[in-house]
Design a protein around this nucleic acid. Structure first.
Ligand code: MN
Ligand code: MN
Ligand code: ZN
Ligand code: ZN
Lengths: 139, 139
DNA sequence: ACAACTTTTGCAACAAAGTTGCATTCTTGA
DNA sequence: TCAAGAATGCAACTTTGTTGCAAAAGTTGT
């Protein structure tokens, strides 16, 4: 296995293509969550918009990345931890932080989502918690 | 004050127009959160798409409605509780539930968002918590 | 290293969602 | 009732997301 992106792709049973490697490298290099647009403009090589949509969907399905909800209708994505990749089911249990200053969205892996008790009759599947505010580097 | 929607508009210092009343009535009548599209198709009268965008933005600014993040890039909106309207700053502290069966998004006003401690250096402003699963009426 | 097979990609053509400027219409308060 | 200001509808446009299909690239076994 030559490098990390190749390794992740092979472990997920995906064929290794320039586009997938490139996009994955971008995720690995970047410290924050990426939106479709970030990827389109941030990739070393240029890839078709459609390819990026399809790649992101594939990565989601395989548990390589997870999506982060937001109120600006821009979905951002970040690398999952190992367990998601291996099980094909998302197990990210951390909160996300969106900085109102620098607009970066971060995974706060060290802050886990607290347990909430739903009213009777509700069945919980996934939880998402997004905090907005000012990040460490913007203070 | 003739009815509730008029009252809310006046209290927020907004002029009372057919569109605003209609949209607000829809929110009041509906038990769940509404997306732009729901409003466009659900209003008694037909209003221009642009008017609906602008109205939603105005309602957000005035603290009449709040937006609910989701990972499907469709933002949904729901009525705020009184405190938002009066202060112009959102104070909704409840979690949101999105049913994977009926696709309805609900405000669970009775379930408040638990407190989380952020790492040093982070300043919190707003918290959003969205739970997905199966709702009471879909079991 | 090659061929056969499978998968991925790019392109084109759409559809849906969101934005902006401007003229017209509606609200409001004097 | 009327003037001033605010909201609306329309047109034109940008951005975002989807689908089908042919060409290109990746994979597997020899
Ligand atoms: Mn994350
Ligand atoms: Mn709510
Ligand atoms: Zn920041
Ligand atoms: Zn349901």
């Amino acid at each position: 296995m030559i490098n990390k992106s190749t390794e992740i792709l092979k472990n997920s049973g995906l064929s290794v293509t320039a586009g997938r490697k490139s996009i994955l490298d971008l995720f690995i290099a970047s410290g924050n969550a990426l939106a479709h647009q970030d990827i389109e403009s941030g990739c070393s090589e240029q890839f078709d918009r459609v390819t990026i949509y399809r790649t992101l969907q594939t990565f989601l399905d395989k548990g390589i990345i997870h999506s982060i909800p937001a109120t600006d209708s821009i979905i951002r994505y970040a690398l999952c931890n190992e367990t998601c990749t291996t099980t094909g089911h998302h197990h990210d249990n951390h909160i996300h932080f969106r900085c109102e200053q620098c607009s970066k969205t971060l995974c706060l892996d060290e802050v886990s989502i607290p347990i909430v008790k739903l009213p009777d009759g509700y069945m919980m599947h996934e939880i998402n918690m997004v905090v907005t505010g000012i990040c460490k580097s913007c203070r």
